[in-house]
Every structure is written in structure tokens, then in C-alpha cells.
Design a protein around this nucleic acid. Structure first.
Lengths: 137, 137
DNA sequence: TTTAAATACTACTAAAAGGTAGAATTAAAC
DNA sequence: GTTTAATTCTACCTTTTAGTAGTATTTAAA
């Protein structure tokens, strides 16, 4: 019941870039140091973020990364989907194929409400409305 | 944002044993076939369930497994804890150590409510009050 | 025009999770 | 007593996830 490592990193990277408006570009070196993410692993994730069109990269000397669209237009759910978390909404909590009202697992009914809250939370939270300033990175 | 395989299997096994009162003992062979869980992997999980005192095993010919206490006294949360899911309540959603009101990650505030719902759901659901009969196994 | 500092690509290694094999142990049935 | 059917133990194999290494490419500065 946790997000995987790569997804956690991705959210932290995007959230950091989104909430610091004092600069235009962030280099991988800089992000890796500030966020304590292994440099080589971070660059791998950056490439994926670029391909997913969350991030725009400028190559060459003085290059770096920035958001490819306004922070308000990227929800946490968008990021989760890109990293294969929570992809299939009907995915059974107990791993027995797909779950719906006609095909329930033992936990299905109890799971409906919490699942909806999680879903709404991730859909309604964008890179812009994370918890303002002052949170750990 | 999923339970891991082993945990899913464990819940399914316990829930099956708890909700079929027409027998005293279930053998690993039988459980593996009915629940479509690889036999050898299931026996491994059974051993863990025995050690965790959810299950009582009878060895030797005509042996098998049964619950070690009433189904109403084993919550899903108990099982999750045993299998290292959700163990640490303060565990940060973004993987930045521990989270609380004095030490928040960017998603902390939004995560509080959904997390509480999930927690309550898992704590209040026991092997007895899974969705009655007729659900898939 | 060379050099330096950045991203991108390809391929590998390490650790964790999922799963398998085979033999040891136990105890009822025969 | 021997056999048979069950659980248990130890060790291994496979797949996925996490992380590393090295080189190629790009582009602005010197």
C-alpha cells in the first residue's frame, strides 16, 4: 500500500520544479543533489518525464529542465498513470482480475469509498496546489 | 498503490478458510487448487500464517490447516501488518522518511483523510465480516 | 574552433519479490 | 511396522524494480 520508488521520485522532482519560480531551468546535477536522488537514476526518470510531456528539456551547455505546461495542468493522477500506478480503475484489491458490482471480491464493497477518496484526491491535486511552501522535499 | 502478491494471497487464503464452515481442516493441496495459487508458494505462505498465529496446522496424514482463533478476531489490518504492508503509520507517501504535522511532505495534508479511511476500513473488517457469501475467491 | 557542461542512449549490476525443487518430518491408516 | 499423505525446512531459480557505468550527442562559452 505504498507508491513505488520511481513514482515517489517523479512526483518530488515535478513538485520541486513546479514550486520554485525563481529560475528558468534546473539541471539534473542540481536536482539530484537537492532532492537526494541518485544522479544516474534521476536522469533516467527525467527522460521518461520528457517523453511523457510533463517536462521540456534543453540540451547542451547551460541546458536543463522545466515544466512543459502550467503546474495547474498536471495532476498527481497524471503522473501515477504515466508510471503504471493505479492504472486500471477496476483492478481488484485482492488481485482476482477485475472487480465491479457484478463481480466482487470479498473486500470490494468496503473498498469502494476509500478508493474513491484516493482517486479524487490524486485527480484534484495538481503540481500547483501541493501544500504551498515550507514542506520537505 | 496495490497490495503485494503475497499479501493478496494471504488474505484470500484466510478469508476462504474463515468463510467455509462445512469442514474442519483444509490441506495445502486443496487450497492451492481452489484458490489458484502455486502449491509451493502457498505452503510457504501457510508457514508464515502459522507462525503469525492466524492458522493452526495439524501435521501428518489427514492433517491440514484451520483458523487458530475466531474469524471475528482477525482483522485485515492484522494480516497487512504481518506482511509488512502499511506497517508504519507515519510512513511518508513520497518516501521522505516519516510524516506528521510538524514534518510534512507536499501531499501530507491531502493524504490524511484518505489514509484514515483506508486504515479504518482495514481495521474494522475482519475475516468474519467480509462480503458474506457469493463473492469470488 | 575547441572545450566544457549539459541531456540522451545503451547496457549492465544489485536487491527485492515472486516462485520452484527436493528432501525431512510427522502421524494416521493399512 | 510400513506406507501414505500431509506439513516444514533449506536452498535455489526467475522476474521485476532499483540503481550504476560509460559513451554519444548537443550547444553555449571561451
Amino acid at each position: 500500500m505504498q507508491l513505488n520508488n520511481t513514482t515517489q521520485y517523479a512526483i518530488r522532482i515535478l513538485s520541486y520544479i513546479a514550486n520554485k519560480h525563481d529560475k528558468q531551468l534546473y539541471s539534473a546535477k542540481e536536482l539530484a543533489e537537492i532532492l537526494s536522488i541518485p544522479y544516474k537514476f534521476l536522469t533516467k526518470i527525467m527522460t521518461e518525464l520528457v517523453k511523457a510531456d510533463f517536462i521540456l528539456s534543453i540540451r547542451g551547455r547551460e541546458g536543463g529542465y522545466k515544466l512543459s505546461r502550467p503546474a495547474s495542468e498536471i495532476s498527481i493522477m497524471d503522473v501515477l498513470n504515466q508510471f503504471n500506478e493505479f492504472v486500471e480503475q477496476k483492478q481488484c484489491l485482492l488481485g482476482i482480475g477485475m472487480c465491479d458490482n457484478n463481480n466482487k471480491c470479498g473486500l470490494h464493497d468496503q473498498w469502494v469509498k476509500p478508493k474513491k477518496m484516493i482517486k479524487d484526491m490524486f485527480e484534484n491535486t495538481t503540481l500547483e496546489n501541493l501544500d504551498g511552501n515550507g514542506y520537505k522535499i
